[in-house]
Amino acid sequence: MASAASNDFQRDAHGKRVILMVEDEVIIRSVVAEHLRDVNFTVIEAANAAEAIAVLSSQTHVDLVFSDITMPGELDGVGLARWIADRRGEIPVLMTSGAAVLDGSGPISRLPFVCKPYGLEDIEERIRQLLTQ
């Protein structure tokens, strides 16, 4: 399995935690990513699960994945979370959706979840909590 330690350059060269934000709605993604950068995170933006997998399989250092559930493409956010659990299980995942709950059973249904619409400070706080666990 790939390891962040094998990187010869790190995205958090400035000591920042790295968030991979997976969201197909460009306005939401841009606004949230900008806020997270303003509060000292490094943010990698992915427009869908395939882009997120490309980032993760390139061994780019990622501390946490924050993903929407409903996205176009072969994999939605739940599929992405399963992929991460199978291959990069050390990375915490925070899911979001306009739906009130995370459907399904098993480990995916127990993932941290935040309902849309969310406040910028709320999501920042939730991410900080998950990174300190």
Binding site: M1, A2, D8, F9, I53, L56, S57, S58, Q59, T60
Partner: peptide, 17 residues
């Protein structure tokens, strides 16, 4: 160099679907 390295890692990654 960084772009080529990331692409190569992605292409050869055992993590890819």
């Amino acid at each position: 160099r960084r772009i080529h390295l990331l692409r190569e890692r992605h292409r050869t990654s055992k993590l890819s679907p």
